[in-house]
């Protein structure tokens, strides 16, 4: 595989993993603008375990457990907030993480932190596929159903006996673990990390991938992340190939305009349950009643 394709594939894989980390809370109705915080924790934790002698294959799971623990602990106070307040609280959390790490001398502080073991695409790609499969499986379990019901109507979910808090905390914690997995893979692939890489814009873009892809089905983050990773890059290639530099310069203006128009014409995201059912029908997909139930 050529170096260019490989580097793009890695970026795509990492974006997909991050997107699933934000998708799990979003699928249960919580907006998490703190992706950068969990990615930073995962990257630095894995790098630090690795530097203190733990092999990479153990350091990454250890970093995930560490980040999931932090996610679990802060899930309780953060889930007390909702709507705009939750967006702000998760955002503040990410900023606190960045502020803490930049002051920790043993993690390299502002100079960044070199990482020992290298993970190439033979590690990143299979892990990404596993994550995608796991999330599809998760959304088909009782927990996934509970998350969907909270997303659609929390009050009714409570009435039907769904343990709302349990489902929300589980989604938030699992999301934290996935994002830290992405962060750890980032650290081991690029072998160098600094807090400035994981800034507010990263959190914003990942949340956008998920919301534009759609939060109703597990296809959403995959399609969203793929679309918004591949299309800008393709536009850049087209600009280079055709010598029209303005395409590359203005591609993000189009990107922003697409976002605004999406919210007007398809506010529920690119992929919806109805769409999935419509595609699946000719191949013996779910029948009438199931489709009616899915068509929220």
């Amino acid at each position: 595989m050529s170096g260019y394709l490989e580097s793009q594939l890695i970026i795509l894989c990492l974006n997909v993993i991050y997107a699933y980390g934000i998708f799990l809370p979003a699928a249960s109705g919580q907006l998490n603008l703190g992706a950068a915080g969990f990615i930073t924790i995962g990257a630095y934790a894995s790098a630090w375990f690795n530097a203190s002698g733990v092999p990479m294959y153990l350091a990454i799971p250890a970093a995930m457990v560490f980040a999931a623990t932090i996610g679990f602990v802060i899930a309780f106070p953060i889930l007390r907030t909702r709507g705009v307040y939750m967006v702000l609280a998760t955002f503040a959390f990410a900023e606190v993480v960045a502020g803490l790490i930049i002051n920790l001398e043993f993690l390299g502080a502002a100079a960044g932190y070199p990482v020992d073991s290298h993970a190439d695409y033979l590690v990143v790609v299979p892990v990404t596929i596993l994550v995608v499969l796991l999330c599809f499986f998760l959304m088909s379990t009782r927990l996934g159903l509970a998350m969907r019901s909270i997303h659609d109507d929390e009050a009714v979910a409570t009435l039907f006996g769904v343990d709302v808090r349990l489902a929300k905390v589980a989604a938030f914690t699992l999301g934290a673990a996935l994002m830290s997995l992405g962060g750890a893979l980032y650290a081991h692939h690029y072998n160098y990390i600094e807090t400035q890489t994981f800034n507010v814009l990263v959190s914003i873009y990942i949340l956008l991938y998920v919301l534009l892809g759609g939060t109703q089905t597990a296809w959403g983050p995959l399609i969203g992340a793929a679309f918004f990773t591949i299309v800008p890059e393709a536009l850049r290639q087209i600009a280079t190939a055709s010598g029209q530099a303005w395409i590359a310069e203005s591609r993000f203006i189009f990107f922003g305009a697409i976002i605004v128009l999406m919210m007007v014409f398809r506010p529920e995201g690119l992929v919806t349950r109805t769409l999935i059912d419509r595609i699946a029908m000719p191949f013996g997909g779910r029948s009438g009643p199931a489709r009616a139930a899915g068509a929220v």
Binding site: A26, I150, L212, G256, A257, I259, V260, M263
Partner: peptide, 18 residues
């Protein structure tokens, strides 16, 4: 649904990018 208040938020992020 629960993420409906995200719609204007996302549009405004789109404008920010533009």
């Amino acid at each position: 649904d629960a993420t409906e208040h995200a719609l204007p938020l996302v549009s405004s992020l789109g404008f920010l990018i533009v």
